[in-house]
Amino acid sequence: MAEVAEQEEIVKVPKEPLFSKKNRKLITDPLTDNNPITIQVLGICSALAITAQLKASIVMAVSVLFVLGVGNVVISLMRNIIPSKIRIIVQLIVVAALVIIVDLVLKAFAYELSKELSVFIGLIITNCIIMGRFEAFALANGPWKSFLDGIGNAAGYGIILIIVGFFRELLGSGTLLGIAVLGDPIEKTGLYALGYENNGFMLLSPMALIVVGLIIWVQRSRNKALIED
């Protein structure tokens, strides 16, 4: 019995607990100091075009969370059998298959929204975050770590998307998730009674860029280590 116990202990030593400090860092790091959008400059294409409404931003964030989490695990499981010369094509096929699943699910359960997102669901395939994480992390690490890394990065991406979507919808149309929170602009209730007007400019695409620029400004002035020279 003593021997068995000893053996078990030996086996256990190299194994990290599922949520060790290092693993937790994989999730929390991309949320702030290593954010995919504001620091790594990845995945901006799709981030900006669909953030005029909070709902679309949330759906996009969840889709990327699914694709990146599952894709990272799949690539990580296959990492030893993918020939390095054709790995880009293999990665693209894995992502494309996952994105097709997301697209079909959205078409089945949220048709209006999938119309609104139009080609941008398809563009998750070429979202640089996904290829970037596959290349930089999943090809070199085990499935569980890759999963955490995928979830963390997708969450970091999603947070920026949701912040941008929140401000653009709130200031642009005075609603959140389609619910009027500032009162009725036609009946002149709530804030509108005081003469407040919606800023329609927030709904136009250039404002997404400027909002992200401002987020970067805030983030970097809070953390001086991130400042570029």
Partner: peptide, 13 residues
């Protein structure tokens, strides 16, 4: 804090 990436975003906007 705006140098580099930040100002590029705003310029693009």
């Amino acid at each position: 804090p705006l140098r580099g990436l930040g100002i590029t975003f705003i310029l693009t906007g």
